[in-house]
């Protein structure tokens, strides 16, 4: 039987194994996601040279990150595959579901529908950048308290949308919140609780 602290196997390193087996330990600090601290290109051992690569500089969660990317790479894929920031999810890669919602200069946008290299002068905020010093953002806490998620896959996008929705002032009534949160699909159907969370965080 495999145990968590056995030596690593070829193909994945120890840090990955921690990410896999941590299941939200009650009361104990969860190992910080490495992607959240990344400041340099990941996977340095990979010899593949990206064809037509471009050097870009991206400001993500108040950190400036320099990297070489494929010019065709979406902002979403750059976050997930290059920077290992997997908090932002790919639901459809076509702008139909909202799971990839992030903030660009404080406005909520879909990271799957835009090329990373076009955002070198923008301030990008992802779900990883929302909490401060380990304290959940009020919207995040409201989501937890109101059970505004189930499987959690759409949740990053929902939270980013909810933060923006409140900032935009589109939270004046239940109907308005429903309409302005309709850009984030939740297949588990947590919708009514998401509304509750937005209202709670709006107070």
């Amino acid at each position: 039987m495999k145990e968590e602290n056995k030596p690593v196997k070829k193909g994945f390193s120890r840090r990955n194994f921690l990410q896999v087996s941590g299941t939200g330990v009650a009361g104990l600090a969860v190992a910080p996601l490495l992607g959240a601290q990344a400041v340099e290109q990941k996977n340095p051992e990979r010899p593949f040279e990206i064809p037509n690569a471009v050097d870009v500089q991206l400001n993500i969660n108040n950190e400036t990150i320099k990297l070489k990317i494929d010019p065709r790479a979406s902002l979403l894929d750059t976050l997930r595959y290059k920077l290992n920031m997997t908090g932002t999810k790919k639901g459809c890669d076509a702008g139909h579901c909202g799971a990839c919602t992030i903030h660009i200069n404080g406005e909520r946008k879909l990271s799957c529908l835009t090329l990373a290299m076009r955002h070198q002068n923008d301030k990008i905020t992802t779900i990883e950048g929302l909490s401060k010093d380990g304290v959940l953002h009020p919207v995040q806490q409201a989501f937890v308290d109101n059970d505004a998620f189930q499987c959690g896959y759409c949740t990053s996008g929902q939270v980013m949308s909810a933060v923006a929705c409140i900032k935009e002032g589109h939270n004046k009534s239940t109907e308005e919140i429903k309409e302005y949160m309709s850009g984030n699909i939740c297949r588990c159907g947590a919708y009514p609780n998401i509304i509750k969370a937005v209202k709670a965080a709006s107070k």
Partner: peptide
């Protein structure tokens, strides 16, 4: 039309 995210873009 669309959603707030797309309308922002």
């Amino acid at each position: 039309g669309a959603t707030q995210q797309i309308r922002n873009m």
